[in-house]
Design a protein around this nucleic acid. Structure first.
Ligand SMILES: [Zn+2]
Ligand SMILES: [Zn+2]
Ligand SMILES: [Zn+2]
Ligand SMILES: [Zn+2]
Lengths: 142, 142
DNA sequence: AATTAATATGAGAATCATTGTCAAGAAAAA
DNA sequence: TTTTTCTTGACAATGATTCTCATATTAATT
């Protein structure tokens, strides 16, 4: 966690940017949350501690976190963005409950391998992918 | 193609709606295009024939086409929606070139099966999914 | 320290795809 | 024909995100 801030600071410095109190607070808030948090939610939490902070700053900082490689942007088709920690975590995909919003992460090497093989067959060089499986979680099935 | 219009008309009638000239033109324009077309593009094409048409009507009609099951909404993270024919076509996923925008469709039963098995393992009942593989197509790799 | 240069912030305007509102029009029903 | 229902187009509204800009902060230079 402390190291995260350090990594962030390094990234900022290398780009001639500064680690301000606002940026640090936003970054810390992000790190101490579980993944898949919306910018809006970060903004709300941050305001409890520093009520004067603006949402523009929140948006800007989340973008910086993503650029630094510490956060990954996710769009689950809800009409807004979410971020999740991306420091050392490996790639994963998502299982999303359409009723309660529960998100489960999974990774499956065989699926990944099959994707690459399909892509190769079409002459594509894969750089990224997005797999979202929607459905009802155990609870929501009743 | 004619049958598509008929199916659309049936859907409308069953819901107490009418097949107006605007709706018919928008539907025909949609059907005679290849898939993955944006609402904006439909709107442009339609206006060449009926310049007075409004974009609200275009949006509304595309929505109706989707509800009728004749069109499928796709969001490729470009910030806007696309539609593709969904009449009899089977499910498929997408391979997207991040440089030229080329889109290739594919289907792979093994991937689908693996998705279901992962979901089952987590107690999920799958209703839908979205798999987008991004990369560079043969041309764009140089 | 004083001055100058660069970067950051918050408030609010702007953007952009999409949807809502509503008065006027067209079609169907009575 | 009158009444009811559904459509339309113009334009306002929405909501997430970005931009603008005047005002702070901080860093660099003298
Ligand atoms: Zn659920
Ligand atoms: Zn995740
Ligand atoms: Zn390409
Ligand atoms: Zn497709």
């Amino acid at each position: 966690m402390q190291e995260m801030i350090t990594i962030f600071q390094d990234y900022l410095q290398q780009n001639g940017l500064r680690l301000t109190s606002q940026r640090e607070l936003i970054a810390r808030t992000f790190f101490q949350n579980r993944g898949h948090i919306s910018t809006e939610e970060i903004y709300r939490q941050v305001r409890k501690i520093a009520p004067g902070i603006g949402f523009a700053t929140t948006y800007r900082t989340m973008k910086l976190l993503a650029e630094s490689g510490l956060a990954s942007l996710r769009r689950f088709g809800e009409g807004f963005s979410r971020y999740e920690p991306a420091g050392t975590a490996e790639h994963h995909d998502h299982l999303i409950c359409t009723k309660c919003g529960k998100i489960i992460e999974f990774e499956n090497d065989r699926i990944e391998a099959l994707q690459k093989s399909v892509a190769r067959r079409h002459g594509f060089h894969v750089t990224d992918h997005k797999l979202e499986v929607y459905g009802l979680c155990r609870k929501c099935r009743q």
